[in-house]
Nucleic acid binder design. Sequence first.
DNA 1: GATTAGCACTCAGTAAATATGAGTGCTAAT
DNA 2: ATTAGCACTCATATTTACTGAGTGCTAATC
Lengths: 340, 340
Amino acid sequence: MLTERQLLILRAIIDDYIQTAQPVGSRTLSKRDDLSFSSATIRNDMADLEDMGLIEKPHTSAGRIPSEVGYRYYVDHLVETKIIDERETYRLGERLRASAQESEVLIRQAADLLSDLTNYTTVALGPNSQMNRLARIDLMPLDERRGVVLIVTDQGHVEHRTVVFDSPMAPDLVEQTIRFLNDRLKGTPLGQLKFRIGEEVAKLRLAHQEQFEFMMQLIQSTVEVQHPASLYLGGKKNIFNQPEFQTLDTLRPFLEWIDEQERLTDWLESLPNREIYVSIGSENGIVALQNCSVITSDYTLDGKTFGTIAMIGPTRMDYRHGVQMMGQIIEALRRTKLEE
Amino acid sequence: MLTERQLLILRAIIDDYIQTAQPVGSRTLSKRDDLSFSSATIRNDMADLEDMGLIEKPHTSAGRIPSEVGYRYYVDHLVETKIIDERETYRLGERLRASAQESEVLIRQAADLLSDLTNYTTVALGPNSQMNRLARIDLMPLDERRGVVLIVTDQGHVEHRTVVFDSPMAPDLVEQTIRFLNDRLKGTPLGQLKFRIGEEVAKLRLAHQEQFEFMMQLIQSTVEVQHPASLYLGGKKNIFNQPEFQTLDTLRPFLEWIDEQERLTDWLESLPNREIYVSIGSENGIVALQNCSVITSDYTLDGKTFGTIAMIGPTRMDYRHGVQMMGQIIEALRRTKLEE
DNA sequence: GATTAGCACTCAGTAAATATGAGTGCTAAT
DNA sequence: ATTAGCACTCATATTTACTGAGTGCTAATC
């Protein structure tokens, strides 16, 4: 267990290191107003903290830097998660709503805003359209054999795909199939389209034996429309200002990793479903993010569960500020009503 | 005017430097099979080439490197633009068509392919939808006051926007307005929508005095649908392998510039309309691309003018190979038919 | 007159040698 | 329990010397 003074010292080391990115020495600490002990005393406590694995030294004659364990202790014991500054949240909400009422734009703004507030890089996973319900399917003919399948969801989300048919389209057959699809599938979550259609197809086969081929092709195409989750990156440039990313060896893996949209999406989707979650250094298990910490949170917009937002900075990140800003943003989003 | 030998030497210097990224000395050159002169002779010619501004030395005791003027001469006199390897073009075409028949996917593949072939970064500006003609407008209601405006073009391109109305939608009024818009605007290039609508509105005002407000709002929304040109980046990572971008000072401006989608689009659109155009070093006038050369070309797909593709590498880029690959790719695209 | 051999000179890059100073751990005094 | 004092460590900066690739010029050669 840590003594009062050791706690004070640990906190001072981390706060200092977060600000300066330089190892912190005992003399520097003893000069602080809130630590009125001699440097020798502090040195003794520092040795103890090091024995406990909370801090470490880069080399013999440097000061101490927090270890991952130290950061973990700091985050778990010394950072308050749930302080919402009402006025600030309101202001953030206003800034968000000023930009748009379209959800995808709103999320992008939120990512940008969060990265502006913290100077870290943010990633936001937009509405997962798998959960959206089908509002309408339509086929828009382009020429004899090509058309665009349109899928609109109850959230105003639109997806589409160009289809080329083996044979020319017969207008009434198209209309018939479209009506069939709309009748049977309206309200189905997109993620379940494929499954639901399977159930209906058997019935269809009996009713329209001869035109079955064509219908099947259209149905098939509908199912194959991709439902990509929308991904937004905010403040990618911020990484350039972090002292720990001033060398190519550290910068390159990060940039290569963050540019891989698909992997990024998978990662965000794989995160535990929580309100605010901090992952420190190697905890995240991603090689390219070894020296990064991540603050993630699911968010809701207009009351509905929506997606995930993440904030990525160096392990030496300002956890207190980061967690606070993240809290404010997701609270501001929660309070945002979409219409008007 | 350059002597035969000077030309040989200039060419050798540039070829060598392109490969090694190291200043080329006279002794190195004299050891080449195609230059059977003594190093002293070569030194004399090098001095002349330097006087003419075609090459320069980084410092007294280094070899020579090509100047921008030198590269320009090289590109204008020593690179053949129009050699199409039929078999290779065919192979590239096959690789492209294998991936998709949807134009946007195809362009993305082309950008990726080109960057794979050259190890440079590529940017492709997709179909400029401004030129696409309107095939259909529709409004899909979401609830009482919200709906999605859908715009489909003759090329199968889809754009959309969520609209919030001041007052609830009356179904027949919506239908009436949609029909009006479709009747009057079908076939209009998207770029001219705004202008064309202006002409029609006056007539509409007379005919439907009382519901004019609502109709106007819908029309307004239609016009405001954005027509973003689609932009694809290929091989961004390649830059990391270029020796001239191994330092943050050079890397950072490049990466920051290339990540700015909007600016990138503007830039591509502002390029002169040509088949294949090479811009060397500071010629491009972009500070972040001072040390880069760019090979750009407009391309056509399925016979129709389509967009622009650009290849960005260090000034010390392999112009011959780059120009050739660019030629092959746009030729492969030109020969690609979209249907089937 | 064109080419080449020879030589003094230049200068980036590297390596070894030295100095600096921030910080530590330990011991003895308070 | 705290603190002053001191020897010790080690990354970093500075100096110095060395190396070698490459040049420009001059004089000899073809």
